[in-house]
Write a protein that binds this DNA or RNA. Structure first.
Lengths: 230, 230
DNA sequence: CGTATCCGGAACTGGTCAGTTTCGTATATG
DNA sequence: CATATACGAAACTGACCAGTTCCGGATACG
């Protein structure tokens, strides 16, 4: 999973207690401890952020290490000191998109399924989703050829969004708001699927009206909630 | 639209009537008519087919003109005699995917919406859709940067599939099987959207069970048709 | 203060690929 | 049969880029 520090950055600290470190036994035996200037890890997020920016603009194949280095005001050698290859850098950058995903413990809880779902499609959340989807679009071609990248995208993008919807739907079931035999898994993918297709292939805007339309016109009717209209 | 014959293949036939060709005026004035060996247009489909094969295997950026030429047993020069650039060749290849799309005049008509939709997801149709979706996946990154390619993909892939669903749903409305105020446009994109998302981002199989699940678990309930179960 | 490592910057290397040209051959027209 | 073009094959050109190395300067340890 962790693909940083491909240059070992020294075995540093202590000799790994390969087996049984008896308490009281001093660990820092003959190990020469680290030496020289230390790697500035506070730059990592800036570099990964720069990589995401470039990915969004050019896609995987269009991105070059020089672009990322220039954008991060870092040297190419610095990047290669931390990641073994372009693909490793990208996988790490994608993985760190997860950082600002919805927190499952902090989801909207309005009391109705519609209220919860609508709360998820507030404009700032839409804009962030649009940006991430755009980044992912530049990776899709690679996804079918790199299982590691595929896993990173699923973990940082697909799964968190599905999980959020899954939780909201399960809550609605527990409340008795909707039937318990609905297909939770497929329903959880409904909004992300339609948003992705619209954005990537239909070239349509991912506006609030569209997403509300999917919720009110498809998702809620599908689980038996008729819009309180007319 | 037509991007073939980028080398003019001779001005051939007649001198273009730049202005006012009065009827009766003989057109083939001094024009030397074509000369030399003629371009063998029967090879075009083979070349475009080879391009689609390579696209499916490697994606847009991984595809090289040499690969396509080798696969089509043609010379590179032959390809460049017919298309001005790699992107022109790809756009033509994508456009010719439309050839074997559903014929709107020849859609299933079983008398029920479910029957019609299920008839669309017969295994051979699924396999073809899976292949095309795989080709498209290798183009998505490019789509956001090439409006022409985007248009080709929509015309050859997105629109025909949406059109088929649109027609089936409209028929169901006309029959009185479903309400007339459903969102036909969004519903037409439902199955393609979920199929694409599952295939491209979830790495899931596009099997019949999944598609039937979308139809029975989401689409039909959404338009008010409850599965006649237990 | 010496040494090992970090840094940003820039030069270098080797491979790849779009697009062009050349060559010998095949096939049309006149 | 002379001319103009298409053909497959292969060589060539120029750009681009992943990855490496080297530089002068900064920083941490002993």
């Amino acid at each position: 999973m962790i693909r940083m520090d491909h240059t070992e950055e020294r075995a540093t600290t202590v000799s790994v207690p390969t087996r049984e470190l008896i308490p009281g036994e001093a660990a820092q035996a003959v190990v020469p401890m680290k030496l020289g200037r230390k790697r500035d890890h506070s730059r990592d997020p800036e570099i990964l952020g720069a990589a995401l920016d470039v990915l969004a603009e050019t896609g995987y194949d269009g991105m070059t290490i020089d672009m990322v280095a220039a954008r991060a005001k870092a040297g190419k050698a610095t990047l290669y000191r931390r990641w073994a290859s372009k693909s490793d850098l990208v996988i790490d950058a994608v993985a760190c998109m997860k950082r600002d995903e919805l927190d499952p413990a902090n989801l909207p809880d309005t009391g109705t399924l519609r209220g919860d779902l609508v709360a998820l499609v507030r404009p700032p959340s839409i804009a962030e989703g649009e940006r991430k989807m755009h980044i992912v679009s530049g990776l899709i071609s690679m996804i079918s050829r790199s299982p590691e990248l595929a896993e990173a995208v699923r973990g940082a993008f697909v799964e968190p969004r599905a999980a959020a919807n899954r939780i909201l739907i399960r809550r609605a079931i527990e409340r008795g708001e909707i039937r318990a035999d609905v297909d939770v898994e497929t329903l959880s993918m409904l909004v992300p699927s339609m948003a992705a297709y619209r954005l990537l292939l239909q070239h349509g805007a991912l506006d609030r009206d569209f997403l509300i339309g999917v919720i009110d016109g498809i998702l809620l009717p599908a689980v038996g909630i008729r819009p309180h209209e007319g």
